[in-house]
């Protein structure tokens, strides 16, 4: 059965799950009509609350998201989950193993879970994750969880995307000092110490609390520390309470928060459009490979080359 990508957008608005899934695939594969479809859905977005879940591998992010999803389902909320895992830089393939921790949710029509591979994108998310969030938002999800790759120290994409960021740590992963050094603690709105039944859990809680106190910048929101045992759902209800508190806090901060997000979306869309247009053009330029050669052999400086190229493009527009 054939369908157009624009029809898929309509399907999403009509709450058809298959349309959501297919539209996501079209976006991810760069279908030329998918831009227009996402654009059409834009005015239907803005209702979902987006929670980024980040933290080192093995900290229990997926299991925790599964528990949070259950909590929100009990409230009758519609839940979306996007779980991102890394692509192999050599084979290009990926093992997307987050869903396995949430598989019982597949029996619940009120939850939509989609796995994504980074496909070379750095920063913790895939290139199209933001668009996937928009699709789930337009589809009617009340809350959308986005699980990052979880390398732990370079998860900056999620900052631009999520309303609230939950940083999940677990005792004994050796990440506490690393995290402080890397500054990742700055991005967490809520800190979770998962596997809180482990021996050194309290030490981890202490280290995080102390690290938070070291943050000298005066913030209006003090990140709370929540203990959880994701495998038994312990602490999940407390975590939901903290999420709702942060959500209220954001509401009070009002348009500021939405404006920051709006500006981010504009700049990202602009960068993507520019890159797409310019780079496509550039690659078909006969001088392109020669330029690369010169840069590799240090006869040409990439920064100067870029400035020159931009000058040419802008110059074309202005003459």
């Amino acid at each position: 059965m054939t369908y157009s990508v624009r029809e898929l957008a309509q399907g999403v608005l009509k709450r058809d799950r298959r349309s959501v899934a297919r539209l996501m695939t079209a976006i991810e594969n760069g279908d030329p009509d998918s831009r227009a479809a996402v654009s059409e859905l834009y005015s239907h977005t803005g209702c979902a609350y987006t929670v980024g879940v980040t933290g080192p591998p093995g900290s229990g992010k997926s299991t925790l998201i599964g528990q949070l999803a259950k909590q929100y389902r009990r409230q009758g909320k519609k839940v979306g989950v996007i779980a991102v895992d890394p692509s192999s830089p050599f084979s290009g393939g990926a093992f997307l193993g987050d869903r396995i921790r949430m598989q019982e949710l597949s029996a619940d029509e009120g939850v939509f879970v989609r796995s994504m591979a980074t496909r070379g994108n750095l920063g913790g998310l895939a290139k199209d994750t933001a668009d996937f969030v928009s699709v789930l938002d337009a589809f009617g999800c009340d809350i959308i969880f986005v699980e990052t790759v979880g390398a732990g120290q370079s998860e900056v994409d999620v900052v631009k995307l999520a309303d609230t960021i939950v940083l999940v740590m677990a005792p004994g992963l050796g990440d506490d000092i690393q995290a402080i050094k890397a500054g990742i603690m700055e991005i967490g709105d809520i800190m979770v110490v998962n596997k809180a039944d482990r021996e050194n859990a309290e030490r981890t809680v202490l280290e995080i609390t102390e690290a938070l106190e070291l943050e000298t910048e005066q913030k209006e929101w003090s990140p709370p520390v929540v203990r959880t045992i994701a495998t038994s759902s312990e602490g999940a209800d407390k975590l939901v309470e903290r999420l709702e508190e942060h959500r209220s806090y954001l509401k009070k901060a009002g348009m500021t928060h939405r404006r920051i997000k709006g500006e981010t979306q504009l700049l990202e869309a602009l960068k993507a459009k520019l890159a797409e247009t310019v780079i496509a053009d550039l690659r078909s330029d006969p001088d392109y490979e020669g330029m690369i050669e010169k840069i590799a052999s240090r006869r040409l400086n990439p920064y100067e080359a870029a400035t020159e190229l931009v000058g040419k493009i802008v110059g074309k527009k202005w003459t």
Binding site: A21, S91, G93, R99, I100, Q103, S106, V113
Partner: peptide
Amino acid sequence: LRDAGMEVIYTGLRQTPERIVEAAMQED
């Protein structure tokens, strides 16, 4: 399959037919 360049979603043990089909649909 991963080494052959595919993106593989693994749903684990003891899955009911309904859950498998739902996952296949959501993951397209």
